[in-house]
Design a protein around this nucleic acid. Structure first.
Lengths: 196, 196
DNA sequence: GATGACATGTAATCAGTTACATGATTAG
DNA sequence: CTAATCATGTAACTGATTACATGTCATC
């Protein structure tokens, strides 16, 4: 018998609001599930089969005209209970890996101008994401502000978006700080040269 | 011939400052490499062999009295150049996965009191880490402030610690916000009950 | 006598990515 | 005719974790 994975719970947590097909789930997890879990269809399809084997979801085939058939997955009572149990279990801080922070660790050995280019390009990516998140956030606050209370399914989007925004803002600040550090070093060098 | 992995660069970036044994490297990466890359010894030993095959490190065996022998790995010129090239190559935003953020996404379906417990416990973990990082940061600022300029090897510690602090502060804020949201919902519920 | 630090490795397994594979319909 | 969206799957591979394996010395 297969056991539960975090991905399994991610799928259940999406199915908890509405029945979805594997394709729908993959769409929602392309852009990480409300910004903090993602998976591809090649991982999702087998995982759905596992969830079904465990009795946490069921599916029905929907025949469509002029579209391929699809499998509509629905969470079961057992799946719902399993998810609810997992949700409130103590959660450790997961291992974090960031390629750009690793690069920052060794950046001292490079040309500061190249470092500035690196962090400026990276900064742009984070600003882009941040702006997207802020647009989404403004949208749900404007249109759904009444249902953003803790017990509403939309609260999930709200809470994770808020995390995404804080996360990206922190990255933006840090990238700017890195650029400043490299720039400060460069001007310092210039002054030293002129004095000699 | 094996190819380079990010772990390989992580090891090279540690060896760039000083020669180290596999055991030393594992110690430094237990607590993630200055907080944003980690690996275990079972991954590090084979990776060192790969780096040696590629000519990016060499080792010498050091016999010790009353201690097991150890292999002291040193970065080569080729390793150093390879690392330097990689460092300034454009870097994408890696996929992020956070179990607690995923839980926040589905937390609406649970008892708010259990949610408060969950986030309070998690908050404590982040506060602990944050305080550790802040102690480390204060330490290097006090003792090594003169060598914290961009081109010094210590700048790596400084920059990654700064990221770690920002990252943990953001988590602390967000956990507190989550607790507030659950609490606000509870008080709202109470008021509604009293009025009926 | 047991635990923990030092020290190095391998094997089994799992999670996740990339690539392979198929097939219909719609828009440019 | 080409690319994109809808729709579902499998296979090969890589990256990472857990467990297995061995051995010394110091401390409780």
């Amino acid at each position: 018998m297969p056991r539960m994975t975090i991905l399994g719970y991610a799928l259940l947590s999406l199915l908890a609001s509405e029945p979805l097909s594997g394709y729908d789930l993959a769409q929602r997890m392309k852009k990480p599930i409300s910004y903090f879990w993602h998976a591809r269809h090649s991982q999702i399809y087998p995982e759905l089969a596992r969830l079904e084997e465990l009795g946490y979801v069921t599916h029905e085939v929907i025949e469509q005209v002029e579209r391929p058939h699809k499998k509509r997955y629905t969470i079961t009572q057992a799946g719902y209970e399993n998810l609810r149990d997992w949700l409130t279990k103590p959660t450790e801080i997961g291992p974090d890996r960031s390629e750009i922070v690793l690069k920052a660790y060794a950046i001292w050995m490079t040309d500061p101008r190249k470092a500035i280019d690196l962090f400026q390009a990276h900064l742009r990516l984070h600003i882009e994401r941040l702006e997207q998140y802020e647009r989404d956030y403004a949208l749900i606050e404007r249109e759904k502000s009444s249902s953003l209370t803790f017990a509403s399914p939309l609260f999930g989007n709200y809470a994770t978006l808020r995390k995404g925004i804080g996360y990206e803002r922190e990255y933006v600040d840090w990238c700017r700080w890195m650029i400043d550090q490299a720039q400060a070093y460069l001007t310092q060098q210039e002054v030293t040269c002129k004095l000699q």
